[in-house]
Each structure stands twice: as structure tokens, then as C-alpha cells.
Amino acid sequence: MLMAVGITVFYIIFVWMVFFRFRWLKFNIVWGIVSGWVGLHLLLIFLVALRFYQPYTVDSHVIRSTIQILPRLTQPTILTEVLVEPNTPVRKGDPLYRFDTTIFQHQVDAAEAQLVAAEQNAKILQQDVAAASNAVIRAEAQLEYSTQQQKRFTDLVPQGGARQDELDRWNAQVEEDTAAVAEAKANLEKAQLALGSTIDGVNTGVAQARAQLAEAEYFLGNTTLVAPEDGMIVSQQARPGLVVGDVRLGAIASFVTAADPYILATFRQQNLKFVAPGQEVEIALDLYPGEIFKGRVEAVWWATSQGQYLPSGRLPEFVLPKLPGRIAVEITFDDPPADRILAAGAHAAVAIYTGGGESFAFLRRINIRLYSFANFIRPLDV
């Protein structure tokens, strides 16, 4: 900086001595143009230094995250109450909209009934296992008796103590009782399998009924929409009588969040040569003339739409743009003013101090403060 000032002052003194003090050369239009041309080029030292070491832009705005308020309901449902006023701050969890609960309350009631029935069925399955076990015991006892009778008559018939038809009858009875034991064991296995059908120790029928009840309660809960964060509804268009449901494609409102506002500023690409995260930033918001807010570079968005090609069957078409694409820089406030409204979309001027060319920085600080104070009278309309 001192060198640039020294060169400029030396040049002015040199011109003064040559043309006015000693009159070595006669000052005329030609020499005036030449002297001015050289002087303007000396001033480029200041321009280049400020441009690269303290980049400045007036193309910057306050950005706030927005959340699309979209009801998640399975049936077309009528909006019955609007519980929020537009442009009024609300806290996280505050109710915003309430929808008709009739259908969803019926679904919860039905799911609760199904859960009770499933729990009863699980108890019945336990009794089914006990009954099947008893049936197996009875069938095996009957088979044992038939087997003993078969053996007894088998010994008596050769000795003439019993008729052959009676032995045949017990032979048939043993086969019948054997089949009965097999059937009873199969029924017991079926009952045990039904009772053993569990997930984490819970009967699958009960688990399914609980899941259906939870789903019904979820959609019933969705009939009241609450604020996802601290913030506000800016443009209130939803009114009672609005029908929403599974066929609605768009949101019914946009919720502007209160947390973490930031500045998004765009710069010419060559101005970002030395810009990096963490560097000091000064912000002049049009909302607050005469004030300067402090911030830091959070990130440089190293991408623009000119660098994006979407998959398609068309060949690329290259057209020289009128202006090169600008690069966005994300800037966060060091200490967001709690007593000031940082409106989404608020316009601002931004100066970044990269740490280089510190002797020129005071010129940029003067520049941005002049912009801020000029907002008291600009634009010149009443």
C-alpha cells in the first residue's frame, strides 16, 4: 500500500515539476492525455489489490431454510382448523393445522379391536397345544390297549381259546389306533408351530395387529400438523375446507425456519482467487442502514449450472455466454443479532478480507460503510 501511494505521489510531483515548476516541457493536450493515461494505470494498483484481496459484491441475500408443510394422510381429509397466524413466530411442536379425525379415529378403533382379538387368539393357541397334547396321550393309551389285546388273541387263537374273527378285529383296531396316534401327533405339531410363530417372543398375529394399530395411530396423529422447528408461516393460504390426502401433490404452506440464517453472495470468478473458509467478512444489510455486521466465510460453492449436463439423447450445444457464471460464497454471521429480523431474501453488500494486502483493507472498509450509510437516502424517492 505504501509503495503504491509513494509511486502515485512521486508521479504527481514528477508531472508537476516537469510541466509547471521547471517547465522543461510545454504542457498541452497531448501531454495531458499521456500523463492522465499513465496516472490511470497507476491507480490500477489499488483496483487490482482490492479486487483480489478484499473482494466485494452487492449481489448477496439472506438465506433461511424452508420446510414444505405437506400432510401425510391416506384418505382425502378436510382441513377443519388453522391454528397459526401468518408472519407470527411459533415454537417447535406448536400446532399449525388440524384436519378431520373421523376416518382415522375409526381406523384406530378397528385396529385396537384387532389387537385384542389377536391377543385372545394367542391364548387360544396355548390351549390348542394343551388339547392336542392330551389327544396324543389318549391315542397312545388306546393304541397300547389295542396292542395288548392283539397279542393276547394272537396267543389264544392257535390254542382254540378265541376265534379268528376276533383276532382280525383287534388287528384292524391296532392299525386304526396307530393312525390315530399319528394324526394326534400331527395336530400337536401344528398347534406348536402356530404357537411358536413369534418375532422377538411376540406372536406374529399380535405383532401384526400392533403394527396396524401403530400405523393407524400415526395417521391419526398426522391430522394435527405441528411446527417442525422454531420459525413462521409467511404466506398463509390454507383455509378451513381445504381437502388434502393421498392425491395431493404439493405442500399447503412453506415454513421458514428461525435457526442458522446465512448470507449467500455471488462473486465474479476471478475475485475468488484467495478466498477460503474462515476469512473475515463484513456485511451491510439494506434493512439496517448505517450498521455493519460481522461474519465468516463458511464455504465456497464450487459449482454453477453452466457446469452441469443432464443425461439425455441430445448432443451438447456450446454457446458463449454473455457473462461468465458467478460463484456463490456461503457466509455465516459471527453473532446473529437476536433483536433484529433477518428476513429471508434481505439484500446486502458483502466484503471479504482474505488476509492479503492488509494495507489496502481500510479502503474496502470505507467502501462498505459508505454503502451502508448511503442506504439512508438511496433510492432517491419519497
Rank of each mutant, 00 (worst) to 15 (best):
A179Y: 10
V202C: 03
G231Q: 03
Q75F: 05
F99S: 05
L115S: 02
S254I: 00
T8Y: 10
Q237V: 15
Y262S: 04
N28P: 00
F19E: 09
G160E: 12
Q105D: 14
I33N: 06
R378A: 03
I252C: 00
E330K: 08
R314L: 01
I63Q: 15
F376A: 09
A122S: 10
G160D: 09
S197H: 04
L143S: 07
L115F: 03
H61S: 11
T257V: 10
I377V: 04
I45L: 14
T224Y: 04
L83N: 07
Q54E: 13
N121K: 11
I13D: 01
A374T: 01
T332S: 14
R248F: 00
I199W: 09
R378W: 11
T77A: 09
L380V: 05
L47T: 12
Q192D: 13
I7K: 07
P240H: 04
R340A: 07
P336D: 02
L195T: 08
L44Q: 06
V329L: 14
T178Q: 11
W170Q: 04
P337L: 15
A276M: 11
L225S: 00
Q164E: 15
Q75H: 13
A172P: 01
N375G: 12
V58Y: 11
L249C: 00
A211R: 01
V382Y: 09
G357E: 02
V281T: 10
A122F: 05
A216I: 07
T101P: 09
A118M: 09
D100P: 10
G196D: 08
T178I: 00
V300C: 12
Q149T: 07
A258P: 08
Q173H: 12
V108T: 01
A265R: 04
S254K: 11
A374F: 09
I263L: 13
T66V: 14
A348L: 00
T74P: 02
T66P: 02
G290R: 13
E189Y: 08
R98F: 02
L42T: 10
G290Y: 09
A209C: 06
A111F: 13
A265I: 07
A179E: 15
T57E: 08
I45Q: 04
V5G: 03
A344S: 13
Q75W: 05
A346F: 01
P95M: 03
R248W: 04
Y97N: 01
L143R: 15
L70C: 14
P316T: 13
T66D: 07
A4W: 11
A251H: 04
Q192S: 14
D260H: 13
Q237H: 09
R365G: 14
Q114N: 15
